[in-house]
Design a protein around this nucleic acid. Sequence first.
RNA 1: GCCGGUGUGGCGAAAUGGCAGACGCACAGGACUUAAAAUCCUGGGACUAUAAAAAGUCGUGUGGGUUCAAGUCCCACCACCGGCACCA
Length: 1026
Amino acid sequence: MIGRLHGNAVNADGQENKLERDEADDHQRQDAHQSRPWPPTNQHCLKPVWLGGWFVGVRHKSIKTQIARKLRVNKHSAIESAVSLRRIFRSMASSRRQYPFHLIEPKWQQTWEQQQAFRAFNPGEEIPKNHPFATRHKLSGKVAATQLPPKFYILDMFPYPSGAGLHVGHPEGYTATDILSRYRRACGFNVLHPMGWDSFGLPAEQYAVKTGQHPRVTTEANIANFTRQIKSLGFSYDWSRELATTDVEYFKWTQWIFLKLYNSWFNPVTQKAESITIFEDVFSENPKRKTEWEKNLTLQVFHAKWTQESPAGKIQYQRDRINELRLAYVTEAPVWWCEQLGTVLANEEVVDGKSEVGGFPVKKKPMRQWMLRITAYAERLLADLNTIDWTDSLKEMQRNWIGRSEGAFVHFDATEQRNPNTTLLLSVFTTRPDTLFGATYLVLSPEHPHVNGLTTDAQRAAVEAYKIEVSKKSDLERTELAKEKTGVFTGSYTTNPVTNQEIPIWIADYVLASYGTGAIMAVPAHDTRDFEFAKKFNLPIVQVVEPPAGKDWQGFTEDGIAVNSGFLNGLPTREAKNAMLKRLEETQDGSKTINYKLRDWLFSRQRYWGEPFPIVWKKDAAGNLYHEALPESALPLLPPSLEDYKPTADGQPPLARAKDWLNLPDGSIRETNTMPQWAGSCWYYLRYTDARNAQSFVGKDADNYWMASNGKAAGVDLYVGGTEHAVLHLLYARFWHKVLFDLGHVSTPEPFFKLVNQGLILGEDGQKMSKSRGNVVNPDDVLVEYGADAFRLYEMFMGPLQDTKPWNTKGVEGVYRFLGRVWRLFVDEKAETAFEQAETLATEAQSHRELLDLILLDGGITDMDATPAQLKALHACIKKVTEDLDGMRFNTAISAMMMFINEAMTWQTKPLSVMKTFLQLLAPFAPHIAEELWARLHSTFGQTAISLAYAPWPKFDAALLVESEIELPVQVNGKFRDTIKVAVDADNATIEAAAKASEKVQQFIAGKAIKKVIIVPKRMVNLIVG
RNA sequence: GCCGGUGUGGCGAAAUGGCAGACGCACAGGACUUAAAAUCCUGGGACUAUAAAAAGUCGUGUGGGUUCAAGUCCCACCACCGGCACCA
């Protein structure tokens, strides 16, 4: 240690790199640095950078360390201060480019755009003769679906175009999907790979509130910036299908789908969404479609009751019943209100008692809201998870969110305190009906509707006080303070239907109003929460389950054997449940049921920048307000223009400010809520398949072709995006899709067959990227320095797509060097020098293409037969890259290409065919450099090139990979000792003999008996000696 | 608390039950150069031993197990990440 420290000190002239290591030793080194002048001088700590014999600056790397040391902080905190210095040095000391990506990349991006190279063609669409897709598949003109090649739909989760622009996390998924799109295209698929914008959203609206600028202006500027950034990465999107959820032509159809939801109900008999037009028949004197609904008990009852109503009553009754069943309905319920955001939020948008966006406090507030009846689909959303190829963790998250649990309703009766003749029915939900004998009290949530009726005069004050106390608590407090149970006795009793004993009824906030029936039967012996509560309030605890030997029955919540339970005694839990259910159903004291955690989707927001609801409110003769849908012909319903985007003074949404818009000539009033941001993202993947269709949200042919089942796969073949949408977007979109499927508008029951979540990219410091940490990497900066191909390659080389991994600029340099080696493998060195000189002298006017034409191919590339070794290297690479692409293992595919290049660098001659094939492998990953070299190879040898994007994917020849001789590892007693070379088809006797003959092996087997010889063909040999 | 995932060099990582650490970064040495950058070549798991080499021992979060053979399969535990959380 001392020696090294000494060494650093004496070598200070050029060895400062050592100083960067071992920062932990800093305190030991302080002395050595005390004498150094500040700011650091060239002599002591900076490497001069020379360019063409001129001193142009110093290496900036050391600066960070020097500043850090001076400030006595770690290197990363010093980054901020070093940033401006770094910028200066970068411009002064920019290193020589590995290859002219700055000319190549724009050139090919323009070429692709001019060719519309990545246009995906719909069935029946005119395919231009000269389009590379037409050339490849020998198709042109209008082509029917059956003649088109098989489709492959690869989708990215479209971004919200924020003002901050792209960060390096976005292109991670985009690069992966682009590579696969290009690969599938090469394999002959008709690839649909679109991009668009989830452009409704809060930031643009908040900016509008502050400045008065229309959100559309902000949004469009942001979209332009995102478009520029995304295009600079060379992704093969079909831009002709670009869409934004804020486009009038798009949200017209979002509103249209809302009308479908509004005009549909979930028929429990068919388990499908159906049109509410059936109710016209149900609510008529002479039903004509009675066969369609007479088996539905509910509808029968509706019809019977309706018949008995007065004419005025009939209208009201009909309206009420239909509104109760619509998939889109209005409710007055406590919802999450966020003062700062000025809007309500869905349950899912509230995290830890704060708004997910902005982290503002939220509170419950009763308000009139639009809801979507997603709960009707709970069972199908759950069951169909088994039909799709998502990760287990993601499916599990959705399963948990849906929260199916099987159990029973158990009914209890209690007398209303103020009307002793009235009996109140109290139903509870339980998953453990087998423990009913141990139910020693009931607990209602404080919000339960029967609490008032059950409270005795003696307890009224206590109950009221408790309710007020609870209502003051936020949900956060209610759960955070969960350790200590609270509650109050109502004064009422009920009877346990199996023990016939009187049991008290309590209220407590550990019972949630929103789950089950909002009431529970408490079995303190076998439920942790009930147990805590019973102990605190001295309620009786009765054992009814016998745990396995050695476990305490108190608080035992698992399965066991029923005891103290009358007719259940001796039955294991599973059987006891069934026996109890049977009994409850016989005595009509309860019934089997299934309960879900999933709740209906709160679908309205009090905002300006969202889709207005195509709904108006009217008053009937009796003065009752009711809602009515606008006709489809009224769509799109545009939001009004406003001067001020704030909510009104009396708390109405901003849309209420537009009086002209709000009030219709016939006296009706428009709905002023708007839809949440999720609405637009629920169906955008469908619109992409037919983005310019003016007649329909998506045409039948387009839907059938792009979304239809391809054998097992259905819908989008691959969907890539972040994990943050696991239960919001992905559940909502599945729900909408199923409704559209039920109503016959789409052909598949699930939208996304395969779904992959890309992992998070962390900053260089291993922390999540954030402005405040100053560790955000801007793709624009990376592109300027290393180019798009290196950027893409690095994003994929970092590690498996799904993993979280830190950014490392040095790693970008690594793949950039690899691309440099690829370039030098193909390009003549002298010509490149000439090119560089020309480039330095080039005027603005000189075109990039002319400059690039100065580049000549390396003379070693000739149109000759490849040697067996060269073919082997190539085909090993084809095999690995192909298999890894199929398995989405991009990092190992890239390393296979690196190995190929490392070997090819040593070749004296480079066969044209081998070099061309390698470029095809490289093309999906680094398309610009591959296209440039591909075109150059072809023109040099006087060949006409098919666009590399459509060149058929190479196939590997397994025969070329076969070795005549192979190396086998030899183990003795399971330990590796040596390798032997044997003929690939050597028999076991030969292999055994060769193994024993090895000198190294001899040392370990000499003088010992060989008990057993294990030979795994082409794998290894293991000699067992005693 | 429950569910899911991950633990491998200085770092990112790779390994159909069969030579652990491919590929890359960083680092070290060398070639080229007046010099630097760039490029090219070589070497790097740890430890023991040695002038050097050969060689040996240990090594994939921890502890057990299965197997001729375990990073990989089984059991128990620990740590970290993500999700859910008084859901009856």
